[in-house]
Each structure stands twice: as C-alpha cells, then as structure tokens.
Design a binder for these strands. Sequence first.
DNA 1: GAGCACTGC
Length: 680
Amino acid sequence: MTLAIGDAEKRLVVEVRTHDTLIIVGETGSGKTTQLPQFLFNGGFCDGGKVIGITQPRRVAAVTVAKRVAEECGVELGQKVGYSIRFEDVTSRSTRIKYMTDGLLLREALLDPFLSRYSVIIVDEAHERTVHTDVLLGLLKDVQRARSKYNTTQNNSDKVNGNCSAISGKEGITHSPSYLKACQGAKFFPLKLIIMSASLDARGFSAYFGGARAVHIQGRQYPVDILYTYDPVRDYLNAALITILQIHLEEGPGDILVFLTGQEEIESVERLVRERIRHLPLSSQNVVTVSIYSSLPSEQQMKVFRPPPPGCRKVILATNIAETSVTIPGIKYVIDPGVVKARDYSAKTGLESLVIVPTSKAQALQRSGRAGREGPGKCFRLYPESVFFELKDSTLPEIKRCNLSSIVLQLKALGIDDIIGFDFMDKPDRDSIKKSLEQLIALGALTDEYKLSDPVGQQMSRLPLDPIHSKAIILATQYNCLEEMLITVSMLSVESIFYSPHDKLEEAKVAWKRFSCLEGDHITLINVYWASVEFIEKNKIKDGRVKAIEGNLKKWCRENFINNRSLRHAQDVHSQIRGHVQQMGLTVNSCGDDMLQFRRCLAASFFLNAALKQPDGSYRAMESGQRVQIHPSSMISGTKPDCVIYNELVQTSRPYLRYVTRIDPLWLPELAPQYYAAQT
DNA sequence: GAGCACTGC
C-alpha cells in the first residue's frame, strides 16, 4: 500500500490499531517522522497518560524534530512534545510525544524493563542498522510479546496469577523470555511497534517481525540525474578535481558537494582546487571551497552553511558527515567517488581497522539524494554503471563489525543471559560474542558461569562507558585516584581532543608541549583538563559572565589546538559519571602529584591492553600477539618505554596503539594475577 | 616518522 502522508491520517491510525507491528517505508521528505506521532496522538494512543516514543540514531535529529513538532502543535517544547538525549532531558509529566535517541531508550529499559509508559514505540531510521537500533529491535520484540501476555484488556486467556514465576516456554516460539516476568499481578496495555525505514529493505524488517504489514509513504524529492564514467578511474581524487572544474565551467548555477573519505583527502583536494582556480580566466574564478568533517572545530564547520558571495559557486568537500548528519542548503551537484572510510572488526584477532572500501547501493542513493532537496539536481558517480550494479545492496549492520563487550554487558544487566540465543535481526559472529564474554570475565564483570557479578558487574553496567573504562573507574578509589581516573576516562571517551590541521602541525605541537607528560598520554589528557579548568576559574574571577567565559575558552582552545566541542563534551561526561559514582557510594579521592598510584591503577584495569617492546623497537600486544607501533601522535612515541598500556589498537596504514602510558611490566602479574600469573 | 569515517549511553 502506498500513501501520501497528507491524506493518510485515518488510514494510518486504522493500520496501527489493527496491527501490533507495522513497517513504514518512507522516502526522505515524506513527513513520516513529524506527522505520524501527531496522528496517533489525535487517534487516542496517549489516552490515560500513555506516551508515544520515537527513537532516532542521532541526537541532533531527536532535538530538531521535537522542536518542529512542538511548533506545529503550537505547544511549548517539553510539555506535550519533548525530547530526551544524553545530558539533556526536555520532557515533563505532561509529555506525550517523546523523541529520543535509541541508545537512551536502551538505558531506560534497564530501569523499566517493560517500558511500561509507552503505548507506541516508533523506531525511526531503522535502515541505518546502528548497534543500538539492532539491540533495541530485539528487545522491543520481547517486550511486546511479554506485554501482550499481561494484557489488561484481554485477561481471560492468560490470567496472571499474581506471583513472579517465569512464563514457561510450552507455547513454542510465542513464549516470553524469562527475564520479563511481571510481579504481583502487574498488568500492561499492549505495545504497538512501528519500524520506519527509508530504503528498499522492508522485507527484511517484515520477516523479522513475523511477516508484519508494510506501508509505503510517498516522498517529496526532486529528480536527480545520475551520470557515470565510461571507464573505471584510477585516481578518484584527480577525477573529483576534474569534475569539480567541469561542472563549474559547463553547468548552471548551484553548489557542489563532494564526498571524500577523510581529513587528509579533503585538505589535499582543497589545495588542488584553489590552485587550479587561480589559473582560470578571471571571470571564472568565482568559486569558494569549504570543508566539513567531524573532527573539525565547530566554528569552522559552520562555514559550510554560509551562503557564498553573490555570483559565486560554493564547493563543499565533505566526509560521510554530509550523508545524513548535516544537511547543507543550496546543493545542486553531487560528486560521489564511490568510496568510504569504514571501521571494521575482526573477532578472530580482536583487531579494529579503518579502511577505505566501496560504498553500498543504499549509500550511493543517499548521497545522490543530497542533490535533489531544493530542485532537480545531478549526481556524478566517478565509476561506471556496471560497477554500481556490483555494489552490495546495503552496508553490513554495525553489530557485525564491532566489539560487543559493552552491548553484551548491557544485555546481561537487562537479565538476558543467553546472548547467543538472543533474537538479533542479524546475529553477530559467535566468535565475536565469545570474545566479549571472555573479556568481561577477565575484567570481573561476569562470573565463570557467565552471570553478572555483584557488585563489580552491576556497577560496571550502570556506567555508560566502555567496560575497560568502567573497570578503571570502579578500581580507582582503591588506588586513591578516582578524581584523576574520572577525568582520564571522560577525555578518552570523546572524539579527538587535539585538533591537528595539516598546515599548522608544527605550531600545534609546540602548543601541546606545555601539557605533555613523558609518562604517557593519559596524564597529558589530565593536564589539558586541569589547564582548562584553571583557565575557566581565573576568568570567573576577572569577569563572571558565562558568555564571556565561553568566548575566552574558545579562544584558549584555538590557541592550544584543542577541540572546544570535544573538551566541553568531556566535561559533560565527567559530571555525568561523577554523579553515577557518587550514587554508588564510591569516594572521589585524588592522588595529587603521586602519579605512580594512577599508573598502577591503569595497569590494574587496562591489563588486557598491554604491549611489550621487542628487540627491533616495535611492540607486541600481549593479548593478541599482534606486532604494533605506538601512534606517532602519541607524546611518548619517541621515548619507547619497555612496557605500555594503551587505550585502543587500530589498524590504519599499519597497526597502531593510540593513547599510551608507560608502566612497569612487573605490575601486570602483581595487579592482574588472574590473567598474567601463568604467562610470565 | 606518520596521520581516524560516523554515531551513541
């Protein structure tokens, strides 16, 4: 069935009433995200104080959509319509339409396993198949099944008899999982599930939900002409350069969006374009280039949204960030080289890598769509059409290519003990699950029987962090350095704190020197944090206005080549985690200048991430045996200590250790005997 | 002596 959203209100409400699960396929611009929740509200789905929840993979989307719907409803944001994302809860008791990130709903499930406030949950952008979306889908399936068991409206078939016994599996596949058992005769209304996807794979979702009904909603996209090359290109950067110039000289007005794989490519193409433009006739030099990628400080990101000077064409060089996360106005031409830098994970070696690979068909479609938002457009794919047909339909779901430790820990905390048997839409590799179980046992989060341990596992699962980071936090009190560890973990869990533009690298290094510590990068991060705190405190005395302090901090960040957005994010994480540990009753103590305590604590918690120097000067990662190098960006890459712990091991051009600190090799058997006793 | 895409709790 295909509908246009404008005249579909009644039909959609009936569809939701008559089907427990509905798949909605809507192209971009169909209005499904903003309209459907309002239809359901008007259709009575919030009667009795029930809530409609809509999940988004990204924070910005949750916020902007909520704002728009509040406006359309003519209500104040946070009242009838609100949103909830990490660090920001703009909802109230009267909120009935609630937008949120899917990760946040997963956290909510830890507190309320039946998600009992929600009458409808809409999972938006499900086609993106993020880890959070995938786990959520499996969970919602269970919750829906369990809630229909304890239904308040049809209580004759399955009477809840008032005790807490698990539901038996005698009804075969329709049984509810034992972790969802209602206590004291608790009763629920049924849960309606709506899965919204932008692409062609409705069948996959439909099959996963037992043949659920699918409805199509028409989009409002302008046509985009797709052009291919005749032959494969050898050098896509050069091909992109030529295409930019060609469009500029031969096509009508309109801005150009070029998809590249990373900062380096963007910087080099930007140089080349500027160079070539200077050699054009003066009348054709009306081009400005701007670039955008995630690690670029936000003031510079903002430049892509500025309209070009009159009569000028804007060329935007972007990474994947422009595919879904940001929408730039004025784009008429898209250049798509057909490649993307993607993270991959091998469960066998536990090695993460970051490699340039071909895009999927869905991704190519998404990219070309960026040319048709305001009018008809053109997309230049820098490969032959035959290559397009050979591309994979869609990108491999993230859950099949990432480390699962934190997901497994979260599922365990939800009471889901059989991870391998959990009903994932795409099952992660068995090896991958096994590996994460082993890691969680080594960290003491799980018992030898694979049960969540008490209190370590329970405490770890409450922290929204990587399990190793959680472990470090929980151990830190014993080493008298919880304050230092809170800062370290906060700084490690945000995107790169250090901003290094290619052309000012030397200048940046000089600036970073004043923070650097020869013992390692973890302490360097602490130094950056303290320096920023000190700067803020000084400014508070001079001029107490918040705006002035923010402005000065931005300047301080610029001067020190620190990413302001990342630093603020780290401050947010810091205060959130601090709140959690205080709730747990841990003492926030500090080791002062005695960093030996701190490094011993790092060894005791990061022991899985230890590496030993080899005679040839390279390192051997102790867990995997992998030969690695310390990343050149590390402050101690020159000193080469005998033994280090690292934050992550990622293969780019070679396998590198990032964020490294020197430890004494004897600490490992002393502080992690369960893991190192036999090996040393 | 080389350089990490994107997102989330």
